[in-house]
């Protein structure tokens, strides 16, 4: 019960404590804590992350979105190739998609050159990778449902009837 609600709450704010979640969903704190533990063990909850705006601390990170065309293999389809791609720590995200290409790969690095080298030497040269098209990210407007710029602060009056 309330499995989806708990996941939804945590997906939006991972800092919520079992106690807060329990209050919000009218449940017992121990029940919620137990359910969260189980969800972690079953790998339903895979991790808790912080969305950082690195630009604000002057960090120069480069990321690129790469369209990858691959040839599927007998028995394992796209999965074996995808695995060879996602094993690289430089690769942050890999998704299989429909359409003109097969994989969307997001690669992060310190410099443009680093990312370019990775694509040329590691990714494009993999067996079964037919072609790559690299799009460097210029600006992130919104990520995981959160707007990056300080969008809509609370503009309400402090006291209203």
């Amino acid at each position: 019960m309330f499995l989806k609600e708990i996941l939804e709450l945590l997906e939006n704010d991972a800092r919520l404590t079992p106690k807060q979640i329990a209050a919000m969903l009218d449940m017992e704190e121990e029940t919620v804590a137990g359910m969260i533990k189980e969800l972690e063990e079953k790998k339903v909850i895979l991790g808790y992350f912080t969305f950082v705006n690195w630009d604000k601390v002057g960090a120069e990170n480069v990321s690129a979105l790469i369209e990858v065309k691959i040839s599927p293999q007998r028995e394992v389809g796209f999965d074996a190739v995808a695995e060879r791609v996602y094993r690289f720590p430089e690769v942050k995200t890999v998704r299989l998609v429909s359409g003109a290409y097969d994989l969307v790969v997001i690669v992060e690095g310190k410099t443009l050159k680093e990312v370019a080298n990775f694509v040329a030497q590691k990714l494009a040269s993999l067996e079964n990778v037919l072609s790559t098209t690299t799009h460097f990210v210029l600006k992130t407007y919104k990520h995981q449902g959160t707007i990056v710029e300080d969008g809509e602060e609370d503009r309400r009056l402090m006291i209203t009837p």
Binding site: R156, L157, M158, I159, T160, P161
Partner: peptide, 17 residues
């Protein structure tokens, strides 16, 4: 309201919207 609006760092639970 006049009292509140002069202060900084206030958390308001006084808003009817």
């Amino acid at each position: 309201f006049d009292l509140v609006s002069e202060m900084q760092g206030v958390i308001s639970l006084g808003v009817g919207e």
